[in-house]
Design a protein around this nucleic acid. Structure first.
Length: 222
DNA sequence: AGCCAGGCTACCG
DNA sequence: CGGTAGCATGGC
């Protein structure tokens, strides 16, 4: 038992399973870790990972539904779509000019994969895909053991004085992964905890780490 | 009305 | 390197 795992246990005890990543038609799927179940759903997770950059997932759902209505949760459909139509479809989730280009860049790469799992390094070479988006795709889309770190994660760990202010993405990711690997041995359980933990941090972060001063009322301070 | 959202790139010193 | 403006809509 270490502090990181204790935080996980407390968050899970308080909020329960979150069931990330939500899939169109199913939404959140608590305690069902079979998702994504096919390449269409994997692609949907990748799209969502780009679209959710600095926005709320409710906005992302609107964009995804717009695409779905056009039968366009599909790489070939999207790349053959008029780019203005693509931008209009993803408009609800903001930064639509940038994100449209990011999606097209990703699709070029995605097709070259031919169904295989991308490497993290290759994802990071795509314009518009940074560390968090790459880990999002790998963890929730491809079921790889890549912990996803976001702004809430850093705020939380900083507030609990488990990391330094100037800790970088990779530092925090390693802390999370090393701590969890210490106490969980089999890959399936580890994957579930990676997926749930990040979701739980977001749930907790929305409550206590959205506005300054961060951490007021946070029950993890012990 | 203003701040924040499940970030990333480009550019600056 | 680290720091920051710009990107944009939607919700509260």
């Amino acid at each position: 038992m270490n502090k990181i795992y204790e935080i996980y246990k407390q968050l899970h005890a308080n909020y329960g399973s979150q069931g990330w990543w939500p899939i169109l038609g199913y939404g959140y799927h608590k305690d069902d870790y079979t998702f994504p179940r096919n390449s269409d759903e994997i692609f949907e997770v990748c799209l969502g990972s780009i679209l959710t950059q600095n926005t709320t997932f409710t906005s992302v759902v609107k964009s995804l539904e717009n695409l779905y209505a056009k039968g366009a949760i599909n790489p070939y459909k999207i790349e053959n779509m008029d780019i203005k139509e693509l931008k209009e479809a993803i408009r609800p989730s903001g930064y639509y000019n940038q994100k449209a280009l990011y999606i097209l860049e990703f699709i070029k790469f995605y097709k070259s994969l031919d169904g295989k799992t991308p490497t993290r390094e290759a994802l990071l070479n795509i314009k518009g895909i940074g560390e968090e988006t790459a880990d999002s795709m790998l963890l929730y889309g491809y079921k790889e053991l890549e912990f996803k770190v976001d702004a809430y994660t850093k705020r939380l760990l900083t507030h609990l004085e488990l990391v330094d202010e100037r800790a970088k993405y990779g530092n925090i990711k390693q802390l999370m992964q090393n701590s969890l690997k210490e106490v969980i041995n089999d890959k399936e359980n580890l994957l579930r905890v990676y997926q749930e933990f990040h979701a739980l941090i977001v749930e907790h972060g929305k409550k206590y780490y959205s506005k300054k001063p961060y951490g007021v009322g946070c029950f993890l301070a012990n």
